[in-house]
Amino acid sequence: MSSTETNHIIQVKDLTKQFGTFTAVDHITFEVERGEIFGFLGANGAGKTTAMRMLCGLSYPTSGNGTVAGFDVVKEGEKIKRHIGYMSQRFSLYDDLTVMENMELFGGIYGVKRRELKKRATTLLQKLKFIEERDTMVKALPLGWKQKLAFAVATLHSPEIVFLDEPTGGVDPITRRQFWEMIYQAASQGTTIFVTTHYMDEAEYCNRISMMVDGKIKALDTPANLKKSYNAASIDEVFRTLARDAQRGD
């Protein structure tokens, strides 16, 4: 079954990753629908990063199966990499290249044709009101701008799904909100968003969220349903209830 024929952009069953005797990700099974904003939450050491690496084609599962953007997570890691967008807080853009050079570099890596690339980059920069900064070195930009630009770069090749790994860490509250509006906008145009965050208010912006504890997905639902089933006033409270039982990590 290919995910392109279904409504699921991610579909994994019993996905597991072992490092020696340690089971980092332990039989996780879930689906993400097309166009959804999906929040992937978990305590430190719960296995989020390892799971995300498998979903992005950067690491192969020890067992289990599934597809991301229509490609097999067991066999087609390379194809997955080419068809998704990825942005992390830690690495996103080259400081010593200009705004436009970064766009050309990443667009080129993802195989966007030169003429098409120029057009798309210009449109994106205009939308961000960045066009005057096209020849500015990235290192001279404020952090908030860099993050917004990094998101634009991650979606330059029009991927069906974008993975965002703590995209708003350390960003001021206004810029953080502007960033989420970019996410909303991309989602409203059909791009699926898969996002991790430590800000619990951001979890509320997701259509559905999953919470990982000790390598397993302990809860997965809409924020409203999660609060209802855990009889909690906020997602923060749901998270605390679940994470308190964690054996692993800290």
Partner: peptide, 10 residues
Amino acid sequence: TTGVDAVSRS
């Protein structure tokens, strides 16, 4: 507490 989950932060 940067990069630390909500429970450990508290």
